[in-house]
Design a protein around this nucleic acid. Structure first.
Length: 458
RNA sequence: GACCCGUUCGUCUAGCGGUCUAGGACUCCGCCCUUUCACGGCGGCAACACGGGUUCGAGUCCCGUACGGGUCGCCA
């Protein structure tokens, strides 16, 4: 795409509902990326004109989610700018002024205390960057309304109510006024607004204001094709925080749904997305949200983290699970098993068997050993070889395990399995030798000595 | 119901008239690596919604049908 001629200004305009939906987050991401890509401004505007639906906590969750994603705004709550305030509930004098202009030009009239905008009787065309040229006649369309309950159309007034009798303003009007007042150059929003856009264009025209560029992005759907709601898996940003996703991974996956870099690359950091993102890469059709793939993307991001960053990212999840993140063994354990996790939330359960003071035996693991008759011999061989080690390190331990197997004329697997079960209680896990190294000689030997079937599965 | 938008493997997508016996990724399956389980590597299954045009030639352009989504509020 050709770089925009004027300085880019985009905005994300949520209403404070108490959660940031992935659909909204993706819209915010695209606006943010586009502004960053072209060195413009990203504005956060709070659409709180409907008093019944607003709460301060509701906004706080949204702001926290945006900050977690790394989508910092240049103007908005907490960041005053040339167009403060950024709460629509505090901008009434501005709306009054614009309403005055419409009154002066005869575009509005009073109806039962409300103010209606006279809708023009002509085709209004919108050139959308994603959807192409669309058009509609508002007067024709608006004169009939579908009554969903009665399942029939009813006659209605096509003119848009823009102000309620109580003096508060309606979305379509404040949205247009704010966009032009704040100098928004590109309106990137969900396709659910596509059909509303001719109304907005009519308002811009009546105000004799230039149009922003429109780009309507397709919607996210559930796997079954239904509309995503807050109850669906993966729908809410704060759930990603809890589950142990990293922000870049969530941004990465959201971007890949509805936008394509046009090559085979799939994994991008936020910074890399900024370099690549553009509006012409946005797709035209809705996409279904695939939580499994989102998890995979997160795993890829986790694997790319350097050890220090990985440890820092993991710390809160360890703490929450009651594992002291400053345990001196933690770095070594993380290095050993980090590639096994796709989310940070999986980490504590992976660490636990290695760091725990007591062995928690998996019944299935014990059952696997039940028919073995050589357990005592294996145990004695292991103890003998491990006891004799001059140095306790993974390399030496591995050597000892081989020797033990050789002494019994057994395959490695035949002695590894009982050893692993005796020490960790489980049949699977990371490399055994380094695991034993971390657990420590005394503990390993003690657990071997105490291990004999049947064991009561604790 | 009217209007608007869309339709390539199960899913996300590449493809912008010939290079498509349609490429990549997730998932699933198989093999390899290996002390187990993962990771990783290799391989496999799997798609142009349907019908008409236009054209020497259509996944790519046009029309229709079907299906999906959106909008039609004194919600945003």
């Amino acid at each position: 795409m050709n770089p925009p001629a004027a300085r880019v200004r985009t905005r994300f305009a949520p209403s404070p509902t108490g959660f940031l939906h992935t659909g909204g987050a993706r819209t915010a991401l695209f606006n943010w990326l586009f502004a960053r890509r072209y060195g413009g401004d990203f504005i956060l505007r709070v659409e709180d004109t409907d008093a019944a639906r607003n709460s301060e906590e509701g906004l706080a969750v949204i702001l926290d989610s945006l900050r977690w994603l790394g989508l910092e705004w240049d103007e908005g709550p907490g960041r005053d700018g040339p167009h403060s305030p950024y709460y629509q509930s505090q901008r009434r004098d501005i709306y009054d002024r614009y309403l005055g202009r419409l009154q002066a030009s005869g575009h509005v009239y009073e109806d039962d205390g409300a103010i209606r905008f006279r809708v023009p009787d002509r085709e209004i065309a919108v050139d959308d960057l994603v959807c192409g040229r669309i058009s509609a006649n508002l007067r024709e369309q608006g004169s009939r309304r579908w009554d969903a309950e009665a399942r029939r159309e009813i006659e209605t007034n096509p003119d848009l109510v823009i102000r309620r009798p109580d003096g508060s303003y309606i979305f379509h009007f404040v949205n247009v006024v704010d966009d032009l007042e704040m100098g928004v150059t590109h309106v990137i929003r969900g396709e659910d607004h596509l059909s509303n856009t001719p109304k907005h264009v009519a308002l811009f025209d009546a105000l004799k204001a230039p149009l922003p560029v429109y780009a309507h992005v397709p919607l996210y759907l559930n796997a079954d094709g239904s509309k995503m709601s807050k109850r669906d898996q993966g729908a809410l940003i704060h759930e990603y925080i809890e589950a142990g996703f990293v922000p870049d991974a969530v941004n990465n996956y959201m971007a890949l749904l509805g936008w394509s870099p046009k090559d085979d690359r799939e994994i991008f950091t936020l910074a890399e997305l900024v370099e690549r993102f553009d509006l012409d890469g946005i797709n035209r059709s809705n996409s279904k949200f695939d939580y499994e793939k989102c998890v995979w993307v997160n795993g890829e991001h986790l694997r790319r983290l350097d050890p220090a960053a990985y440890q820092a990212a993991t710390a809160p999840y360890l703490k929450q699970a009651g594992i002291p993140a400053d345990d001196p063994r933690v770095p070594a354990v993380l290095a050993l098993l980090r590639d096994r996790a796709q989310t940070l939330g999986q980490i504590p359960a992976l660490l636990a068997p290695i760091l725990a003071d007591t062995v928690k035996f998996d019944p299935a693991a014990l059952a696997k050993l039940a028919s073995r008759t050589d357990l005592d011999a294996v145990r004695d061989a292991l103890i003998g070889k491990l006891e004799a080690l001059p140095e306790w390190n993974a390399e030496a331990i591995k050597e000892a395990l081989h020797e033990a197997a050789g002494a019994l004329d057994a395959k490695m697997g035949a002695i590894m399995l009982p050893c692993r079960v005796a020490i960790t209680g489980d049949t699977s896990g990371p490399d055994l030798a380094p695991t034993l190294e971390i657990i420590g000689r005394e503990t390993v030997l003690q657990r071997l000595r105490e291990f004999s079937l049947p064991v009561s599965a604790a």
